[in-house]
Design a protein around this nucleic acid. Sequence first.
DNA 1: AGTAAGTCGGACAGTACAGTCCGAGTTGAA
DNA 2: TTCAACTCGGACTGTACTGTCCGACTTACT
Lengths: 193, 193
Amino acid sequence: MPTSPPKRRRADAERNIVSIINAALEALASDPDASMAEIARRAGVVRATIYMHFPTRESLLDAVMESAVAQVAEATAQAEPSRGEPEEALERVLRSTWQKLSDFHALLAINTGRLSAKELHRRHQPVMTLFVPLIERGQKKGVFRRDVPVSWHLAMVRAIAHAASAEVRSGRISESHVEPAMLSTALNALRSQ
Amino acid sequence: MPTSPPKRRRADAERNIVSIINAALEALASDPDASMAEIARRAGVVRATIYMHFPTRESLLDAVMESAVAQVAEATAQAEPSRGEPEEALERVLRSTWQKLSDFHALLAINTGRLSAKELHRRHQPVMTLFVPLIERGQKKGVFRRDVPVSWHLAMVRAIAHAASAEVRSGRISESHVEPAMLSTALNALRSQ
DNA sequence: AGTAAGTCGGACAGTACAGTCCGAGTTGAA
DNA sequence: TTCAACTCGGACTGTACTGTCCGACTTACT
């Protein structure tokens, strides 16, 4: 089963599903234990409506995870990760994905423990297939460190993007200063020597 | 009130308090929502015993936070952060604190939202007073980037240390390879140009 | 316009947890 | 050795949540 069967749904139901997933992503990014009631409130919907589309909290988490991965993958693809020099390409990709990457990091933290490492890895795939070649290209060229696995670089980029988000949320750095700071920090972190 | 009054307690009570705080630190680092029952189990104690020393869950969290900060501060001080070149000193300090720093990062995530930014900052103090001068020394000398606030550097170091811990926990990097990888990543991240 | 799909609002049972209490037993201090 | 401090085990209350159900109403399709 490559993808789930394309159910025929009414238009308002479709809209609500989108609202719910987005509301859940927002809510969970700021509070990993956000309740179904809180998510429903944010989505402008009644709690029972969520259960109309997602039989259980777990299944909603799954959908949110999938959506977050898809968003990162989409933004990554649009930034053309395979064009130009690796460093330049990484900067371009990060510029257009780092906030989403931060949300993804938060989601990941929630799903660690709930899902097996294998399962988590599997769901990563859409992002992995775009990021990994970029990192490898940089390693081959010698601009990114070769003494650590690709997964290390990915983890560091995620962590830095998330920390950057947290810094601006806490007001310790301004909106206008984060992006350059985050970019140079991430680039430096991967750079060899 | 600089410190709480030094209550006269029986020796076994004192031991239990230590066990409870340590058990809570472990438990909460791996699961931020660990229950009082789970913490009691790990501490080899009955749930009611925890309430004998900590009136509420919140107060236990406070104590755990304080302990984590103290542990980091202690390990930092022992590594003599003010001796030698900034880069060399940072490496030395990180080498002896990064695991504790990772625990601290996890605790911080729990306490964000529960406590105000001001309050959080206040509790940081013991660590800050040791780390900040080191970073500033590096900035003055020009080896650490000057275009970001000191707090940025601290956030990045914490994030990298925590991510490194997560990577070894997930088995994507071996115990023997983490430390050098983490050190060079952190050092690079702070380095100017 | 008619009908099926979907939403609302609220009630309900089940579960997991924080926090309280107490009586019986154990341990440390003088 | 004696007594107070402490722990244990378990029972109990209150609360917050997840998941289910249903009847009244609204919305989208044809």
